[in-house]
């Protein structure tokens, strides 16, 4: 596993160096490798396909223009995520699109109403439970959801998440801890069912 990761990093590093030296094949390779996940991430922070595509366009155009001044990196993905987030925020700053978003953590999260009917699901499979949890995840305050997504979906390390979100690592830990508390109610019910399902 460790070796595989090393190889991957090495490959990325070489790809990045080729790109920096002006190799347009390497550039298009980077684009096709990351445009999909960048769009997915961008769309979750700002659900507007045009603006996200604009941000991605800017991001790659800038990348090419400033390639000689970029530092070496073995995680292109991390670099791109960080830049995309900044671009999106800059694009939306003057338009105050974020106005419509509740200030992170200020609102009570939407309760996921695990009411009586939840108890009927003795036969519920694990897939369905995960589905229920995902719905709860999607209703978290934006910054909590973003931290969880970057850490567990995109697989960034905590310090990378912190850097991408431009906050310190402890704040990211707090965000994740807070989201757990919010999800606890739906969790507890799920757990009971999960245990019933697994052990009886």
């Amino acid at each position: 596993m460790g070796d595989l990761k090393k190889d991957l990093e090495n490959e990325e590093y070489v790809l990045w160096l080729r790109f920096k030296s002006g190799d347009s094949n390497a550039f298009s390779q980077i684009y096709s490798r990351y445009v999909g996940i960048l769009y997915n991430y961008g769309y979750h922070i700002l659900p507007d396909t045009f603006l996200v595509q604009d941000a991605i366009q800017d991001l790659f155009a800038d990348l090419w223009r400033t390639r000689q001044n970029l530092s070496d990196t073995s995680s292109i993905k991390y670099y791109l995520f960080r830049s995309l987030r900044r671009k999106i925020h800059r694009l939306t700053e003057d338009e105050q699109l974020f106005d419509s978003f509740p200030e992170a953590d200020q609102i009570a999260s939407i309760p996921c109403t695990p009411s009586d009917e939840t108890l009927q699901i003795e036969s519920e499979t694990m897939d369905e439970q995960i589905h229920t949890l995902q719905r709860a995840l999607l209703s978290l305050p934006p910054r909590q959801a973003e931290a969880i997504r970057l850490r567990f979906y995109d697989g960034f390390e905590l310090h990378e998440v912190a850097n991408i979100m431009q906050m310190n690592e402890q704040s990211v830990r707090n965000l994740i801890q807070r989201s757990i508390r919010k999800l606890r109610l739906s969790f507890n019910l799920l757990m009971i069912l999960y245990l019933i399902y697994n052990f009886f």
Binding site: H131, F152, I180, L183, F187, Y194
Partner: peptide
């Protein structure tokens, strides 16, 4: 479970 949910 939470990690798996987030991952997918």
């Amino acid at each position: 479970l939470l990690i798996l949910a987030a991952k997918s």
